[in-house]
């Protein structure tokens, strides 16, 4: 159980993030869920890279066990991608709030359906 400690946390964060995206109708909360979901993947990559007793990967005669640096590099890129996604998502949420006056998914859908009904009426007349 304890050996899989990091994996359990990873999976918990992953599922919690996905759940928030699906269950919440608030656009900002959805983005928080998305961030949580993406962050869990950072853990998935980084934790196996660390070896207990391993040191930084600088070759030296004193050490024989090194941690794997590659996951860190990969995740640095993934973090940048995550930040960009979050920034863009928030920017879209701001624009949606300007256009609709709401960031609740059901209210936005309601307003769109109103517009579509009007369009259909207009097309028939």
């Amino acid at each position: 159980m304890l050996a899989h400690f990091s994996n359990i946390i990873t999976v918990f964060l992953m599922v919690a993030g996905l759940f928030i995206i699906i269950a919440r109708g608030n656009l900002i909360k959805k983005l928080i869920g998305l961030s949580l979901f993406q962050t869990s993947v950072y853990l998935l990559y980084i934790t196996p890279g660390k070896l207990i007793g391993g040191t930084a990967p600088i070759i030296s005669p004193q050490y024989t066990v090194y941690s794997n640096p590659l996951p860190h590099v990969l995740i640095l890129t993934a973090i940048v991608v995550g930040v960009a996604t979050l920034a863009l998502g928030l920017a879209l949420a701001v624009r949606i709030r300007e256009a609709y006056g709401s960031i609740e998914e059901d209210e936005i859908l309601e307003r769109d359906h109103g517009v579509e009904a009007e369009e259909a009426k207009e097309a028939r007349s």
Binding site: M14, K30, L34, V41, V81, L92, I96, A99, V115
Partner: peptide
């Protein structure tokens, strides 16, 4: 159209989930 914004947002959420699945 303002619905372009919600379409983009929806695609952002679903596309990011897809991309994260690929990274996993």
């Amino acid at each position: 159209d303002r619905r372009a914004l919600t379409a983009a947002y929806q695609y952002l959420i679903m596309g990011s989930i897809g991309a994260t699945f690929i990274v996993i």
